[in-house]
Design a protein around this nucleic acid. Structure first.
Length: 104
DNA sequence: ATGGCGGCGGCAC
DNA sequence: AGTGCCGCCGCCA
């Protein structure tokens, strides 16, 4: 199975209301340092709407990028979606409702 | 087969 | 605490 497939599958395991990181996802598919590849794969996401690519965030607390179909400025949309799923965001950072950093 | 590139990560200022 | 820079690894020309 191609790497992409595994990543998408792995990503689907992430339940609504929770998030994962690029690095974690990379490790999950056997690439300890393949964070970049994950981003690439998200960009090429062939299953928009099926694979929750918006649920992938950066390990430093920022939401990270989002370019569905190559459109730009999708990061705000990404945050909006995350908040809809119960994930708190403020100042471009992922926060829990009480202001503490979100845990992965 | 080689080079360039990317929705990042971590350590160093 | 915030910003910058370099590193690492698979995919597509």
């Amino acid at each position: 199975m191609k790497l992409d497939e595994r990543v998408y599958k792995e990503l689907c395991r992430v339940p609504r209301g929770k998030v994962t990181t690029y690095g974690a996802l990379a490790r999950a598919v056997g690439l300890p340092n393949g964070q970049r590849i994950i981003g690439r794969i998200m960009k090429n996401n062939p299953y928009p709407g099926i694979v929750p690519c918006h649920r992938v965030v950066r390990s430093d607390g920022k939401v990270g990028g989002y370019s569905p179909g190559g459109m730009s400025g999708g990061e705000m949309i990404k945050s909006a979606m995350l908040e809809k799923e119960g994930i708190g965001i403020s100042g471009g950072k992922i926060r829990d409702l009480d202001g503490s950093l979100f845990e992965f």
